[in-house]
Amino acid sequence: MVVKSQESRAIKNEDDIAVVRSSVKRVVALLNFSLVNQTKIITAASELARNVLEHGGGGEARIELVDEGDRVGVRLSFEDLGKGIPDFDKAMEDGYTTGKGMGLGLGGAKRLMDEFSITSNSPSGTKVSITKWQERI
């Protein structure tokens, strides 16, 4: 997998969530994603950016255009230096939250994307990566 371009956005406050959304929107518009897939990617990005802020106390989003021969895609990574996640299975459950949201962020983002990975070095930081692929035209 080749990374064709990448950019980073700091997530320090609520306004930064909107900045991440618009950066992601700009990048996915470059690929030929359907409107439904564009919406899914932007929504997943919004969920994970909010997680970084709410649970990780801030962090960074990395937006990459990736190329794998017959397909291209967008890979989004969200990293924070928060407390980490002690129980992945619980965190992935719909409706489970330690914050004030609905507990749909992680599980929802996984459903909206093609690939999902999470690593947490409890007690210091969490990294979530999501990817959506598009057949090369």
Partner: peptide, 12 residues
């Protein structure tokens, strides 16, 4: 928008 309806349903 239909795309939002689909996304919201999948999100839960």
């Amino acid at each position: 928008q239909p795309a939002i309806a689909i996304t919201m349903t999948e999100l839960g």
